[in-house]
């Protein structure tokens, strides 16, 4: 597991939004996003990030404290130490006060053409 310098998320909300606030959980600690733009109303797009500079044993997007949040798509850009920046995308998910969704993926193994 490499050291995570920073990450950015782009969350596309589906037909059921949430008033927020949007939080992520790193190593079981809830933290608000920084440099936030957009929103989490229905069909809105939220963008935010965080400078972690540590190891992410777990990294999740926390569900709303009340009600349901229907997410259409989550894109995450990771900047880790010693690897090229990489992106992952996840599909639809519904979150509530009992749930969170994993954001972390290890850097992809290098691939070459043969």
């Amino acid at each position: 597991m490499p050291k995570l310098n920073s990450f950015k998320v782009k969350i596309e909300t589906g037909d059921q939004g949430t008033p927020g606030p949007v939080q992520f959980s790193i190593n079981r600690h809830n933290v608000p996003f920084e440099n936030v733009t957009g929103g989490t109303d229905a069909s809105a797009v939220f963008e935010g990030g965080f400078e972690v500079n540590s190891f992410a044993h777990s990294l999740t997007l926390v569900g709303p404290e009340k009600g349901q949040w229907h997410i259409k798509k989550i894109s995450v850009n990771f900047d880790c130490e010693g690897t090229q920046p990489y992106s992952v995308a996840y599909g639809e998910v519904a979150l509530d006060e009992t749930s969170q969704v994993n954001l972390w993926q290890d850097p992809p193994q290098p691939v070459f053409d043969v």
Binding site: T60, I74, Y90, T98, Q100
Partner: peptide
């Protein structure tokens, strides 16, 4: 403690 959902990567 929340239930963690692991989605497949698109």
């Amino acid at each position: 403690e929340r239930m963690t959902i692991n989605l497949p990567v698109m």
